[in-house]
Design a protein around this nucleic acid. Sequence first.
DNA 1: TACATTTGCTTAACGGTGTTAAATGATTTA
DNA 2: TAAATCATTTAACACCGTTAAGCAAATGTA
Lengths: 200, 200
Amino acid sequence: MASKDRILRLKEETRCNILEAALQIVKEEGWQALSMRKIADVIEYTAPIIYEYFNNKDAILLELNRQGYLKLSRELVEARDRHRLPAKQLEDMWLTYWNFAFANKELYQGMFGVATSCSCEMVNKLAEAAKPYELFSAVIGELMNIDDLEGDVICTKYYTFWSVVHGLVSINLLSRGWSDEINRQVLKDAIGGIIRTMTT
Amino acid sequence: MASKDRILRLKEETRCNILEAALQIVKEEGWQALSMRKIADVIEYTAPIIYEYFNNKDAILLELNRQGYLKLSRELVEARDRHRLPAKQLEDMWLTYWNFAFANKELYQGMFGVATSCSCEMVNKLAEAAKPYELFSAVIGELMNIDDLEGDVICTKYYTFWSVVHGLVSINLLSRGWSDEINRQVLKDAIGGIIRTMTT
DNA sequence: TACATTTGCTTAACGGTGTTAAATGATTTA
DNA sequence: TAAATCATTTAACACCGTTAAGCAAATGTA
């Protein structure tokens, strides 16, 4: 019964095609535009067929995320194995993480809940969105005795602050954080640390 | 023609009601569940009426975001004015930012693109999602000469790393970042800084 | 070979979405 | 009182995820 095997192989291939089609659509049109019917179009079937391979749309997203984590993990291992000193390893691993995020934008968005959905391009043009930056940079300038609020120094410092805090926040909002105690410690350490680099 | 004014006031009130209803629904059921018909239900009208106040659904989201930025800005100003020393101001302002995020989860999610949509609860249960943490914590433990990989110290350090990098990444993915030069500098500074706190 | 069963796939449908156009009915204007 | 304007609703379109029913070809069985 080798024909059984062939059929099984074909089935496995279709499953793969579905995932590839999904990722392709997401890359071309974003997560928002992904639909069962579009996937079906790409693999040249009709939508209900997909339900023979995945329970529902979420299952497809989940599998894509799973593959994302696997890919990231592989790259992290490679980065680690490029060095012997832990400090070097760590540095390379985080750089690899960084590069992974941009080389696989869509996957990263899915894995860590960074949404481009909504009306984000418009948000960027929202005048009110710039207000917090103005508030912070004024204080940073004061603290560092810098008058030129347009300079890169203030921008960089603000950016550093924002990254830690926003990173911490969004990780917590996706409920992937740890205890409140650790949160407080990280927040205090990070903010205190950055402030120290600015005053000394 | 005082009746004109009354009607205008009513219109303004309805506009307000729409926004309130939208926020209420989002708070109760999440962004995903927000629909024009549901908003209409709450304000006791039918859906098409909403289009006399907002061009489309995105315009409602945008206005909610706008209000979010205004609220955050107000709170930041208050925090600043509680102190005289810039260092203290900065500390309080970031703490205020932090508190705002959790006191206004939904608004923050909208403002900064933190999506709970997708299948995020499931992602948390994905075994593969824990792999990167394991990889990193092993190296951190090695670097700090700690054998107990379950301890809070490693967890905290990993968390700090992750927050900066993920924060930086997600800010960039939402295209609210600055130049590549600044990115590189922040990344290098932050990672290097944290590594230094671990070795000395 | 002839019939029955299974398989692969599609069509049709349900209830939902954002959005628009037409219809309705009340209110204001002339 | 007749005409015009306004607020509001109903109906519709095209899409969405998902399920059930139908169909036609391939397979198993006699």
